[in-house]
Simulated scan of single mutants.
Amino acid sequence: MFLKTLELRHFRNYETQRVEFTAPKTILLGENAQGKSNLLESVELLATLKSHRTSRDRDLIQDGFATAHISAEVRRDVSYADLAITLREKGRRTVARSGEKLRRQLDFLGALNAVQFSSLDLDLVRGGPGVRRVWLDTLLTQLEPVYAYILGQYQQALKQRNALLKQDDRTPDAAQLALWDAQLAALGTRVIRRRSRGLARLVPIAQYWHSAISGKTENLVLQYAPNVPLTEDDPQVIQAAFLEKIQQRAIAEQHQHTSLVGPHRDDIDFTINDTPARQYGSQGQQRTLVLALKLAELELIETVVGEPPLLLLDDVLAELDLKRQNQLLEAIGDRFQTLITTTHLGAFDADWLQRSQICTVQAGQIMTDPKHNRHNTTPL
């Protein structure tokens, strides 16, 4: 797939901006806080309907305006799509595909696939479980867009159950709570099974890349750590274990007024040479792990959807040493359309620069410098 054009109106610090992508790689060059990351964020929204930087649409809208618009033209192997998102300071966002306003946002997913890699992704290793859950859920949504609906159903049931547990100075009605227990277990089982199967597909790819990047000196183990015991991939067995654990934690839940059982408390364990990466991994080991995960995401999405996704690299070269920079750039090649932000061009060799479209970003304005764009290549 290839992102041909991107147009932003009142998005972050962009008033009105249109970019036409003309090469397999686009380097966004500029100082910090000029809008480079904002552009990548808009592409991330087109791919996942989410931003890893904020959960509030009003944060994405330029100051002084009530709405923001993102639109793009995407070419795929056998199709072509115009995508559009309208964000509102008040009220729900709307999405359109090829000029048709969609009633369900779920139907928007899948037209564009992208993997985002930023300096914030180091939190995958050293951050809390919530960071890892969001990472895995975002990946699964791109592999199987219906997962967004399944996860949304679970989160809604969780919200309703928590509301029942939060009633002040009242013991929740036993019959009503039992109904929500059953709902939570049924919906949570669907989430657990998909997380388990998705991670199982990713693990061998990530292990391959990790071995290659570390020079075969380190052994990576990724293990799903579900909050509900997962002994086999049988929905009835998982639901029974779910309900049993709810009964075990019933007194604690009523005391804490919140649900303590379910995939909203899952985690993913990373170990390197039998050592927990979060606690004992060096910065170099943590960077190698995250780089391996991102390369594995790219490969898995390409396998599942049948086309290579976009790669969004947000100021990550500065986080990697020269060896890892070279391994990343070599792995990308021309296989993936890549948008990469940087404050200088020193990390790129002459071949990369020749085959790249270079855009300067300054104060929400994007300019293509002809002297930097003499590449003899055509879009993917």
Rank of each mutant, 00 (worst) to 15 (best):
residue 163 A to M: 13
residue 106 L to V: 08
residue 110 G to Q: 03
residue 79 S to E: 04
residue 86 T to V: 12
residue 95 V to Y: 03
residue 80 Y to F: 07
residue 160 Q to Y: 08
residue 109 L to P: 04
residue 113 N to H: 15
residue 187 L to S: 08
residue 130 G to K: 09
residue 109 L to I: 06
residue 166 K to R: 15
residue 86 T to W: 06
residue 102 L to F: 06
residue 170 R to F: 11
residue 101 K to Q: 12
residue 117 F to Y: 15
residue 155 Q to T: 07
residue 96 A to N: 08
residue 187 L to H: 12
residue 185 A to F: 02
residue 155 Q to R: 15
residue 122 L to A: 09
residue 176 Q to S: 06
residue 135 W to L: 02
residue 82 D to H: 04
residue 115 V to P: 04
residue 164 L to D: 03
residue 145 P to Q: 09
residue 184 L to Y: 06
residue 125 V to H: 11
residue 177 L to Q: 08
residue 100 E to L: 14
residue 89 E to M: 12
residue 79 S to P: 02
residue 184 L to Q: 07
residue 112 L to T: 05
residue 125 V to F: 06
residue 142 Q to H: 05
residue 135 W to E: 03
residue 154 Y to C: 10
residue 109 L to N: 02
residue 113 N to I: 00
residue 146 V to E: 12
residue 151 L to K: 14
residue 173 D to L: 08
residue 79 S to F: 00
residue 167 Q to W: 04
residue 105 Q to A: 05
residue 148 A to T: 06
residue 122 L to F: 13
residue 176 Q to I: 05
residue 114 A to W: 02
residue 107 D to P: 03
residue 147 Y to F: 15
residue 107 D to H: 06
residue 139 L to I: 02
residue 143 L to G: 09
residue 150 I to W: 14
residue 151 L to D: 07
residue 167 Q to M: 13
residue 180 W to Y: 05
residue 84 A to Q: 08
residue 131 V to M: 01
residue 79 S to D: 08
residue 181 D to H: 05
residue 144 E to P: 01
residue 101 K to A: 09
residue 185 A to Y: 00
residue 105 Q to T: 11
residue 111 A to C: 05
residue 157 A to E: 12
residue 118 S to Y: 08
residue 113 N to Y: 08
residue 157 A to I: 07
residue 150 I to R: 14
residue 103 R to Q: 13
residue 80 Y to L: 04
residue 161 R to Y: 12
residue 163 A to L: 12
residue 111 A to T: 04
residue 140 L to N: 03
residue 117 F to D: 03
residue 100 E to K: 15
residue 179 L to M: 10
residue 171 T to K: 13
residue 170 R to I: 10
residue 108 F to M: 00
residue 145 P to D: 09
residue 186 A to K: 11
residue 179 L to W: 04
residue 78 V to S: 05
residue 133 R to G: 06
residue 140 L to M: 04
residue 115 V to G: 08
residue 82 D to T: 05
residue 154 Y to H: 11
residue 153 Q to E: 15
residue 130 G to H: 06
residue 139 L to R: 01
residue 137 D to A: 04
residue 137 D to F: 00
residue 80 Y to I: 05
residue 138 T to G: 01
residue 162 N to P: 12
residue 173 D to M: 09
